[in-house]
Write a protein that binds this DNA or RNA. Sequence first.
DNA 1: ATAGAGTCCGTACCATGGTACGGAGTCAAC
DNA 2: GTTGACTCCGTACCATGGTACGGACTCTAT
Lengths: 141, 141
Amino acid sequence: MGLRSGEVARQAGVNVETLRFYERVGILPPPPRRPSGYREYPPETVDLVRFVKRAQELGFSLREIRELLALRDAPQAAAPAVRRLVKQKLEEIDRKIRDLRAMQQALNELLCACRTKRSAACPIIQSLNGDPTLAKRSRRK
Amino acid sequence: MGLRSGEVARQAGVNVETLRFYERVGILPPPPRRPSGYREYPPETVDLVRFVKRAQELGFSLREIRELLALRDAPQAAAPAVRRLVKQKLEEIDRKIRDLRAMQQALNELLCACRTKRSAACPIIQSLNGDPTLAKRSRRK
DNA sequence: ATAGAGTCCGTACCATGGTACGGAGTCAAC
DNA sequence: GTTGACTCCGTACCATGGTACGGACTCTAT
């Protein structure tokens, strides 16, 4: 019933090397081996890898996914811990979006100045040079 | 008039090692040396490093900053190139924000399901397991 | 029985943006 | 003139998420 690495990789849509990598970093449990040394993955490994890929799409790092996996098979007691991880991730995403918005704002102001003031020196470069008369928001620490 | 590496680093708020690193990757031009081999930075190096740091805050990579620096001292002919870089970066930021919003949406749906359905199995985990009855948006390729 | 595909392993490497180490030489003040 | 701080260099290392290499071994179909 065991699958070989190539089969698991194909079904899960990853590279064979990636399976070894996941095993090395503790995402996949080491599967039993044939006498030849070949890995014999239990069929649910495919779902396990897909779980990992979905969690990655949601922005979780492998470190965090390792935590999620540890909680995955635990009974309902684990639910609060899972929720906590999701909430943390949501806060992190909030922070990232805020940072990106600030960058957006600053860059747009620069672009705007560049369009209106046709001075000899590019206002964008002036601002990056530290000129405080432009794009004040970009100077915020 | 030359500054030594420690002085430049202190004034620019970076590590001495970082100056060497910047020199190695072509961000800082190699400064003249004393007979002893000590670097003698021209005073404007401090502003140069600050330029780099400001551009980093705006989301530019060192590779892009190298481009900006090449354009920095060029005359007005460089302005269109600078604007192009800024516009590219704005598009990139837009994409990132959209991705993060999608993650946010998916995670919020999971959290919501987790609060309402008090089933034995955590709905978040179910969804990551591939259960299509929850958080359909998270299944999108 | 043999060819060709698959798998094994350790290790190195990719990009990114630095930080750390250690031994040798130098600078400035006392 | 010696002490302590500074600087030099090459190189290795950190985290992140893998990918690539190469030689040896194995599996399966014919």
